[in-house]
Every structure is written in structure tokens, then in C-alpha cells.
Design a protein around this nucleic acid. Structure first.
Length: 572
DNA sequence: GCCGTTTTCGGCCCGACTGTTTTCAGTCG
């Protein structure tokens, strides 16, 4: 799958073009890059069908370039740009405050090509002497170069969650603040976040800003203004605070929740109606002279609440998780937004581990913890033979677990189902025959990386009595690439074989990924499972539900929102 | 370079902050 590779190349081309002061080309290349990145299909398959230009943002010119790259492994145009400016542009511009223009100047005047060049030039004081630069610019580069080296990775949503909740609570409790919301990609529940964006109102903004920037947790203040400040807190997470007027809170929420593409489409939607949408409100600018243009020019139509803004635009309110410009605005206009699944719809958890394999707690402890979370049923799924972990179930321990499960069902206020997480091997599931009789449901997953994963998975789905296919791509975000799968074939096979597809809620998995969830939501049925290995991890459920929401799932798309009887009858 | 329910040509989102600039370019989100 070369989607990411091509997206990165297009983005670099955009940087080079920006250096050449090309006006609109960089934007075109970046749009194409973003759209290719979010494709769930392999771009090589799209090329094979001759449909590159069907991709949003890809026209004749970019389409030909992608084709050339796929066919020859090289793109002459790109090589030419690199030859003209032989700079590791992607890495250098990842330093906060250094963009394409700065990178060019640094190359032409100091000969900087790499991050190491940049660091040594800054240390020698060569940058402060340049025209347009000074001591502060040089120090900024030195301050941020370490972060650029280390944090090429975005933080997992699950890891950012407690940090974000902590600050939200703290600001709520602070009398300098009035309204407080976490916005940005966090509010959209993207699997990873680059920073935490906070929106707030305050009667005395200066006081609020002061409290935010001087808190004990703050390691560094990146910028500080009257309405906007950025800080780095412990854990190396950047936090941006924006303070706005209460009467403009709704339009600010819309603006800062994004995504960028959603905002652009929404603004264009406003422009089509002779209106202007920005963070200060929705304005009728039909009679306004463009010269006297200001942020609040024209007649204010809406701004106080998000619902006001969308409503005035003749759109239904759009849940943050689907503000990704993947058709939600048209759906909102047509009154066809999905009624998204909610955490309270979830009635059971269909993958969890106990101390019979690699979990930390007993069957009873896990079941009790699930009951405390008001779940009606859980499926115990310890690893079976051939899983690449030290401790797996064998015939003896499996019998013991069956007894434990029966005992738990006798006196706990929750139904404990016997299951297993079987390993998909070269020869199928390879489980002892008698286990099938004891298991209410069979979960199967692949934890290896064979050269032919699609074939193996399809064979297993067809030939073995699998009920749920777990974490389909086996990706670990920031750590392990997803399997090179023909997802469409796997999904179609699962549908034919009546196998549900898992949306795994572990923070580093969130697998099936949300874009594929959306694509195949009318093909297969999903379950959202925590794959908990401790009682505390049962709380990951909301992360999985958020991904289902990002994939436009309604409760009816998610089997574990059903009663136990309905759930089991699906698999019969 | 892409795109179109006014368009195959003429548009293309918008504002805050920084540093160094005496009026603004570059960067970021």
C-alpha cells in the first residue's frame, strides 16, 4: 500500500512549490495528499482500474504524476524539484516556526540541508546574523529542534484523554473561567491528537490567560496573547487556549472543532449564500464593501450556539466526530445524518482477557467490574493455542475456566459468556474439537504478519466457525503498520459467512479504523470491544464507540447494543 | 492545479501571534 508514501511525496512537492511562490498549486497538492491519505482503498488498485482522477482533488496533472510514480518507482518532476533544492524539507519544516520559506533561506544563505545542519548552525550562532532573523529566532529553533526530533508522532487519543480531562476539570473549577470546552481533533475523537485545543470564556480574559500560562504543569510558554496562548505541559503535550466572547461561543466552537476541511466546506457553503462564516459568527455581508471588511462586518445572523450556526445555514447540527468533510454537510442539508451510536447504547463487551492468559484479573473480577459498569453480558476471550504470547489456554486450564465462568453466572448480576480469542494460523484455528461445544462465541484474530494475510483470513472465515473477527488490520498506531490486506474481500467474506467485525477499543489499536468502518457499515455488522486486559481497561469502551461514531454507525450497526438474545440469534 | 445546480475560465478560507520589519512576512491552526 503506497498511499502514505505518495501523500508524503505530494506534500513535499507542495513545500517546494510554496518556496517557488506558486500561488495555488501548493494547496492543490496538499488537498490531494490529504485525500489520498484518508483513502481506505489501495491507490495501486485504483490506478489499476484507471480511476486515479476519481479521487477528490486529483486531476489530470497530479493523476499522471501518481501513475508515473507507481509504474516506474520514481517521479521525474519530484526528482527535479529535489535537485534544485536538495533539502530535507519535510523534517526541517517540522521544527515549530520553520516553514518552507525559512527553509529555503537557510539553505541558500547557510547551506542547511538537514536537521543536524540546522542544529549546528544555530549552535554556532550563524542564524542570528541573517537578515530577517535575530537572537530570538535562533533560540526558538534551538528550543524546538529536540521536539521535532522526537515527537514526529501524534499522541494516542487514549493517552491524551486523562490529561485533557484533568485540565478541563481544573479550568472548570477555576473561577477565572466561565465556559470551557476541549475542541480540535480531541473533540472529534481522532485516534491520535497533535495537541489539546481549549476554548473558553472568561469575565476577565487577562486573569484567565495568566492562570493558564503560569500553572505548575506548564513547562514552556510557546506564545502568549490576549485571546490566544500556547503552552507545553509535562508529558510533552502542547495545549492551546483560546478565550472568546460568550456571545460568539457557538461560532468559535464550530471553527475550533474543525476539521480544516469541514470548515472550508462550511465556509464555502456560507459564501454561496452571500454570507461569511468565521470564528466570530455567521454574517450577512451582501451589502458590505469589501474594503471595509473586518472580522465582524455585516449583519450578524448567528454565533451564540453551535446549533444556531448550523441551523441558520439550513443544516442539522453535526456531531463533532463526523466533521471530516466526508459528506456530512450534504447529509445535514438533506436531513440524512445518521443517528450515531452512543456509549449508553452498549450492553455488553465481547472481548476481554483474564489471568488464564495475559490478563491481570480473574474471571470473577472482570465480570464484577463489567457489572459495575452496568453491562448485561461479557464474553471471556483468553488466548488459545498458537498465539504468540507466553501464556495461553491449554486443555486443562480451559476446563478450569469453563468452571469459573459457570460459577460466576450463578451469583453475579451479569451474563458471562465463554469464548476464546483463537489464533488464525496457516492451518486455520487449530483448536481442540471439544472447545467448540463449550464456547458461546468464537473470536479470531491474527497476531502474526504473513505474506498472504488476505488469503489466510478468508480461508479461516470460510472454513472455521468464527463469530467475530478481531482487530482486522492488527495495526498498532505509531508502532506497527496494518496488515497489507484486501479489506474489501475480507469484509465481503465476513458478510457472507455471518462473521461480525470488531472495532477494537484499545488506544493503540482502534481497529477496524474509522474510515473503513464508514465504508463497510452497510456490508458487515460490527461489535465494539475493549479487549480489556485489566478491569480498568473496560473503560476503553468509549474510545471504540467514538470510532464507530466516526464511521457513521448507528446503534443498529453495532451488535453489542442488542439484548443478549438478539445478539446470540444473529450468530445462529 | 483543481473544480463547477450561475462557471471549461476564474475563482480558490481566514485570522492570531511572533519577530523583526518601521508596515509586514512567515507560520500556524
Amino acid at each position: 500500500m503506497k498511499n502514505q508514501e505518495i501523500a508524503t511525496m505530494l506534500r513535499e512537492i507542495a513545500d517546494f512549490l510554496e518556496i517557488q511562490e506558486a500561488e495555488y498549486k501548493p494547496r492543490a497538492y496538499r488537498t490531494a495528499a490529504r485525500n489520498i491519505e484518508s483513502l481506505s482503498e489501495d491507490i495501486e488498485d485504483i490506478h489499476a482500474r484507471g480511476e486515479l482522477e476519481e479521487i477528490e482533488g486529483v486531476g489530470e496533472s497530479i493523476g499522471e504524476k501518481i501513475a508515473e510514480y507507481l509504474e516506474t518507482g520514481e517521479l521525474e518532476y519530484y526528482e527535479g524539484l529535489k535537485a534544485d533544492l536538495p533539502v530535507d524539507i519535510e523534517t526541517i519544516t517540522s521544527v515549530e516556526g520553520v516553514g518552507p520559506k525559512t527553509a529555503k533561506k537557510l539553505y541558500l544563505e547557510v547551506g542547511i540541508k538537514t536537521l543536524d545542519d540546522l542544529e549546528s548552525a544555530a549552535e554556532k550562532g550563524e542564524i542570528a546574523d541573517l537578515e530577517g532573523f535575530g537572537e530570538k529566532s535562533q533560540q526558538n529553533i534551538l528550543d524546538h529542534i529536540e521536539r521535532a526530533k522526537e515527537s514526529q508522532e501524534r499522541m494516542l487519543l487514549g493517552r491524551a484523554f486523562p490529561i485533557a480531562q484533568d485540565i478541563e476539570t481544573r479550568l472548570h473549577d477555576d473561577d477565572a473561567f466561565d465556559q470551557v470546552d476541549i475542541v480540535g481533533s480531541f473533540r472529534r475523537r481522532r485516534p491520535t491528537v497533535g495537541d489539546i485545543d481549549i476554548l473558553a470564556t472568561a469575565s476577565v480574559p487577562e486573569t484567565a490567560m495568566e492562570r493558564f500560562c503560569t500553572h505548575d504543569d506548564v513547562k514552556e510558554v510557546l506564545s502568549r496573547g490576549e485571546t490566544k496562548s500556547s503552552v507545553v505541559v509535562s508529558g510533552d503535550l502542547q495545549m492551546d487556549l483560546r478565550i472568546v466572547d460568550g456571545t460568539e461561543y457557538g461560532s468559535a466552537l464550530v471553527y475550533f472543532t474543525g476539521s480544516k476541511d469541514h470548515n472550508i466546506t462550511l465556509r464555502n457553503w456560507a459564501i454561496d449564500r452571500d454570507w461569511k462564516l468565521n470564528e466570530y459568527g455567521l454574517f450577512d455581508v451582501s451589502g458590505v464593501d469589501t474594503e471595509e471588511d473586518s472580522q465582524r462586518a455585516g449583519e450578524r445572523l448567528a454565533s451564540e450556539t453551535e446549533a444556531d450556526v448550523y441551523d441558520t445555514l439550513d443544516l442539522a447540527w453535526i456531531p463533532p466526530e463526523i466533521r471530516e468533510d466526508t459528506g456530512e454537510i450534504d447529509a445535514a442539508a438533506a436531513g440524512e445524518l445518521p443517528d450515531l451510536v452512543e456509549i449508553d447504547d452498549v450492553r455488553g463487551d465481547l472481548q476481554l482477557h483474564t489471568d488464564y492468559s495475559d490478563g491481570s484479573h480473574s474471571v470473577r473480577e472482570m465480570a464484577e467490574a463489567a457489572a459495575e459498569r452496568e453491562l448485561e453480558y461479557v464474553l471471556v476471550t483468553d488466548h488459545g493455542p498458537h498465539a504468540p504470547i507466553p501464556s495461553t489456554l491449554d486443555e486443562e486450564t480451559f476446563e478450569e475456566q469453563v468452571a469459573d465462568v459457570e460459577a460466576a453466572n450463578e451469583d453475579l448480576n451479569i451474563t458471562v459468556l465463554q469464548g476464546i480469542e483463537a489464533e488464525i494460523t496457516e492451518d486455520g484455528l487449530e483448536l481442540p474439537e471439544s472447545w467448540y461445544d463449550h464456547c458461546d462465541l468464537i473470536v479470531a484474530g491474527m497476531h502474526s504478519t504473513p505474506s498472504d494475510p488476505t488469503e489466510r483470513i478468508v480461508d479461516a472465515l470460510v472454513e472455521s466457525p468464527i463469530d467475530i473477527f478481531a482487530h482486522p488490520s492488527n495495526r498498532l498506531i505509531n508502532e506497527r503498520e496494518p496488515l497489507d490486506l484486501d479489506t474489501e474481500t475480507v469484509m465481503e467474506t465476513a458478510a457472507e459467512e455471518n462473521v461480525a467485525i470488531e472495532i477494537n477499543a484499545q488506544p493503540q489499536r482502534l481497529d477496524l479504523d474509522w474510515a473503513s468502518v464508514k465504508e463497510y457499515r452497510n456490508t458487515v455488522s460490527y461489535v465494539v470491544s475493549t479487549d480489556a486486559h485489566t478491569t480498568g481497561e473496560l473503560d476503553f469502551m468509549h474510545l471504540g464507540v467514538a470510532q464507530a461514531r466516526r464511521g457513521w454507525c448507528e446503534a443498529s450497526n453495532v451488535l453489542n447494543t442488542h439484548s443478549l438474545d438478539d445478539l446470540l440469534s444473529f450468530f445462529e
